[in-house]
Amino acid sequence: MKENILIIGGGIAGLEAAAQLLKLGYNPIIVEKSDHLGGHVAEWNRLFPDMTPAEDVVSRLIAGAGEANIFLNTGISFVNRLKDSYNIMLSNGISVITRILLFATGFTLFDAAKKEEYGYGVYNQVMTNMDLERWFNTGNDERIPEEGPKTMGFVHCVGSRDEKARNPQCSKVCCITAVKQAIEMKQKFPDAMIYCFYMDLRMFGKKYEDFYISAQRDYGIRFIRGRVSEVSENIEGRLVVKAEDTLSGKPVKVTMDLLVLMAGIVCNPDTCRTAGLVSLPVDSDGFLKSRDNIADITESPKEGIFYAGTCTGPKTVPETLAEARSAALAIHNYIQGLK
């Protein structure tokens, strides 16, 4: 009989790990709390740096994990530690006995309404990166006028690098996402004036810097180094955005028709709850704590419990996929070692 491996989370990390574990001859069981697979990526439109449709990536991953047992709309009710395995009761009444648990629980997007000064949910023309991707997918959003915005802006680091929001970490993907989305908006609305308000531009990944240069040179996107301090609405219902142009050393003010808040990656509160069931430690950044942040990022300090993807911190799609494969191999090696 094939060995059961319980994967918590049916996002891209869970799917890719399942595909690899199937190939290695195991029986992965994916438990997904929502009604769809692919997690956040499934709700995205296109992915940097090659503008790959997110849908293609997700459907390939779902096809790869096709043989796995998948439970949607299902959570973990409780976990009993047996002598050398875990008895896991799922919210659908099924119980699973397994020696291996893989956390692929992902992240949640920072709730942009918490940054009250930006007026998300208060001013009509303020949206998040997620809302914009949804609009790319559906074309439905009252905040975006048909003729497009005359002037619009992207606010980097919303809820990231922000001690007051209790997220001192960098969310890693927002800089490049903002540049990607700015280019996409400029492609749709060539006459729009587009600003990016940034503190640093962290263009660490493959072709990211090319993207940035292209945004500057080919698309004329204006980059202003300074964090937006305050947003308000004028009598015409347009947004008044204030920041400091730190390169000029002067305050700057601009009126806009649309403002996109780059909500960051924060630890998923459900992850912490589930991690609590098996007493997993949480790192100082609020994400799950690995056995070692350099050499054993996919291993928890507990026997038989592994991690993949953003449950241990912000990651890009390729990083998450690489980690999922690495976790699958680590699990395989662990099981081999038990025999």
Binding site: A113, E116, G119, G121, V122, Y123, N124, E233
Partner: peptide, 10 residues
């Protein structure tokens, strides 16, 4: 202006 948004904050 979304009045309900302010009410939520209030």
């Amino acid at each position: 202006m979304i009045y309900q948004g302010k009410q939520k904050i209030w």
